[in-house]
């Protein structure tokens, strides 16, 4: 069982001046095995929601709740959230010079699994996961994300998803910056994750509908002005594809004022 519940979440981003409120009451429940798509225009607050769930220090939750299987996520430090089963594939993965990908992956797997994976099986596991995502083995020796192309970074986010096997995965624009082949490879990775972990939930944040041709969502939300303004089935995505976000943007101004 893995359920993510977000209740009336209000979040501000810390700026050099006063904190700026971005999320104005988000309510959302991702149930076991579900894939939910979260779509919205630029600047509507999608990444803010993702970062808030993961616990980025620049975002301040001013009210509301985030629960993972009933447990209060917001009181946990960032690393504990990950160990509790949350994973965020970032829109802009961070470069960490001097830390090799292999060292990083092993440290993360050790932390999340509670013990160091056996070296023999681990090496195989990583090799296998990398080849499934068409990642050249030489990346293991490179510094985390350093000098990776946009697409390479995204593949490595999904590599981590597959190795860390979270209960809930938030994928923030994992599709952006991918060419058609890479999009297919990455989507396959996400689908494989869900086939192997049928209880896991996925919140797929995206701006475009094209990834939804590869990954079928159970629910589609439209996000604008820091809140969910409409929810529906896959047909909502089709409507967005045809008409864009125009119908929803006036609300953004209302919400932001």
């Amino acid at each position: 069982m893995s359920t993510l519940q977000i209740k009336d979440l209000h979040v501000s981003v810390l700026t050099d001046e006063a904190p700026k409120q971005i999320l104005h009451g988000v309510d959302l429940t991702v149930r076991p095995g579900e894939t939910q798509a979260m779509m919205g225009p630029n600047g509507s607050g999608k990444s803010t929601l993702a970062y808030s769930i993961a616990g980025h220090p620049r975002y301040e939750v001013t009210s509301g709740e985030v629960l993972l299987d009933g447990e209060d996520v917001l009181s946990m430090p960032v690393d504990q959230r990950a160990r509790a089963g949350l994973f965020l594939a970032m829109q802009y993965p961070v470069e960490v010079p001097g830390v090799s990908m292999s060292n990083f992956l092993r440290s993360a797997a050790t932390a999340v699994r509670g013990e160091a994976p056996k070296l023999r099986t681990w090496v195989k596991e990583v090799k296998q996961a990398m080849s499934e995502l068409d990642i050249d083995p030489s990346f293991a020796d490179r510094s985390v994300n350093e000098g990776f192309s946009g697409g390479e970074k995204k593949r490595h986010e999904i590599l981590q998803l597959s190795l860390l096997a979270p209960k809930i995965a938030v994928l923030d624009e994992t599709d952006s910056g991918l060419d058609i082949d890479a999009l297919r490879v990455v989507s396959r990775g996400v689908n494989r994750f869900q086939e192997q972990h049928t209880d896991a939930g996925v919140l797929l944040i995206t701006h475009y509908t094209r990834i939804l041709r590869h990954i079928t969502p159970d629910v589609v939300h439209v996000f604008a002005g820091g809140r969910i303004v409409e929810s529906g089935g896959a047909e909502l995505a089709h409507e967005l594809e045809e008409h864009g976000y125009d119908r929803f943007t006036p609300k953004q101004e209302v919400a932001a004022s």
Binding site: A54, G55, H56, P57, P77, V78, D79, R81, A82, R83, L88, M90, P93, V94, E95, V96, V99, N103, F104, S107, A108, A111, V112, V144, Q160, L164
Partner: peptide
């Protein structure tokens, strides 16, 4: 960098050391 590493479950002191 610290956020990225800890968001993968790596404890903060270990992440700093990395």
């Amino acid at each position: 960098q610290l956020f990225y590493l800890t968001s993968r479950g790596i404890p903060e002191d270990q992440a700093r050391r990395l």
